[in-house]
Amino acid sequence: MMLPTHALVGMALALPYALAVPELGPVALVAGFLGGVLPDVDLYADHRRALHYPVYHSVLAAALVPAAVLVPSPAVAAAAFLALGAAAHGVADVFGGGLELRPWEGTSDRAVYDHYRDQWIAPRRWVRYDGAPEDLLLAAGVAAPSLVVLDGGYDLLVFAALFVAGVYTVVRRILPALATLAVERVLVPYVPSAIVASLPDRYFEETG
């Protein structure tokens, strides 16, 4: 699933807590949003493995969210919803497409790495690929409660995420061609080979 969807899911998961504990609402909402974003920091370095922990993040969230309810504090709430957003991200990626450059082709058997079992989890493809129309629909669906309830700038954050999601959905299918063109015409001729070699293999599928 695309990054805005993950971010909006993380925020939506924090919304009930923000309503129940309003003094910690801003901390929870921002942490949930960032938690949804955090795993994809590994996008260009061992993607869906280096920072994706569907099992361990889930276990951590299961411990921290009750703690945030029982002992509400900014630090505990931030940790809890950062972990919950990250856990939701890792689990949700299982239900999307694989790691290939064009995930709509369905050629990859790798969705996200399970460090607990030391193996890759196969993609379910309920959402066929990141940026698919159903991905945008999901983003809009999870954003709706936040748009109804939140104000004070949070609604603008949600609208911004939806805007990015819409643009990404429109251009998603041409991005692989642009990426391989950039590798072939820019990176390979002008960037040190050590840096080029650090890119994921999927960016060299057409360039060799």
Rank of each mutant, 00 (worst) to 15 (best):
residue 27 V to Y: 15
residue 82 L to M: 11
residue 158 V to Q: 08
residue 164 V to F: 10
residue 11 M to C: 04
residue 204 F to S: 02
residue 153 G to F: 14
residue 119 Q to A: 06
residue 6 H to L: 03
residue 97 G to A: 00
residue 200 P to Y: 04
residue 108 S to I: 08
residue 203 Y to E: 05
residue 66 P to H: 06
residue 48 R to P: 13
residue 207 T to D: 01
residue 89 H to Y: 06
residue 100 E to W: 10
residue 89 H to W: 02
residue 208 G to S: 06
residue 166 G to I: 09
residue 83 A to F: 10
residue 172 R to T: 15
residue 67 A to N: 06
residue 175 L to G: 05
residue 199 L to I: 07
residue 95 F to D: 03
residue 26 P to M: 00
residue 17 Y to N: 02
residue 91 V to L: 05
residue 176 P to L: 00
residue 101 L to T: 03
residue 188 V to L: 06
residue 171 V to L: 07
residue 175 L to V: 14
residue 107 T to A: 06
residue 156 L to S: 10
residue 27 V to E: 11
residue 175 L to R: 14
residue 5 T to K: 02
residue 95 F to Y: 13
residue 81 F to W: 13
residue 70 L to C: 09
residue 206 E to G: 00
residue 76 V to N: 09
residue 35 G to L: 01
residue 153 G to C: 05
residue 18 A to I: 01
residue 24 L to I: 02
residue 57 H to L: 03
residue 7 A to S: 12
residue 183 V to W: 08
residue 26 P to L: 00
residue 56 Y to K: 00
residue 6 H to K: 01
residue 42 D to M: 01
residue 166 G to K: 06
residue 77 A to F: 11
residue 204 F to M: 03
residue 135 D to L: 04
residue 104 W to D: 13
residue 96 G to L: 02
residue 164 V to E: 14
residue 71 V to E: 12
residue 40 D to W: 07
residue 97 G to H: 06
residue 7 A to D: 12
residue 167 V to D: 14
residue 56 Y to F: 13
residue 65 V to I: 13
residue 130 D to W: 11
residue 29 L to M: 08
residue 208 G to N: 12
residue 166 G to R: 05
residue 152 G to R: 03
residue 25 G to L: 03
residue 179 A to W: 05
residue 153 G to S: 07
residue 207 T to I: 11
residue 65 V to C: 08
residue 191 V to T: 15
residue 121 I to K: 09
residue 198 S to A: 07
residue 111 A to M: 04
residue 107 T to G: 06
residue 39 P to V: 02
residue 59 V to G: 02
residue 74 P to Q: 03
residue 167 V to N: 12
residue 149 V to N: 13
residue 73 S to G: 14
residue 191 V to C: 07
residue 182 A to M: 07
residue 183 V to L: 07
residue 85 G to S: 04
residue 117 R to P: 01
residue 16 P to L: 01
residue 19 L to Y: 07
residue 34 L to R: 02
residue 141 G to V: 09
residue 190 Y to K: 03
residue 94 V to P: 10
residue 61 A to F: 14
residue 19 L to N: 11
residue 203 Y to F: 13
residue 139 A to V: 13
residue 67 A to W: 15
residue 29 L to V: 13
residue 1 M to S: 09
residue 92 A to P: 12
residue 190 Y to V: 06
residue 50 A to V: 08
residue 3 L to Y: 10
residue 117 R to K: 10
residue 129 Y to H: 11
residue 30 V to D: 00
residue 54 P to I: 05
residue 68 A to Y: 15
residue 195 I to K: 11
residue 122 A to I: 10
residue 67 A to T: 15
residue 131 G to R: 08
residue 44 Y to V: 09
residue 155 D to Q: 08
residue 110 R to N: 06
residue 184 E to R: 12
residue 104 W to M: 05
residue 27 V to N: 08
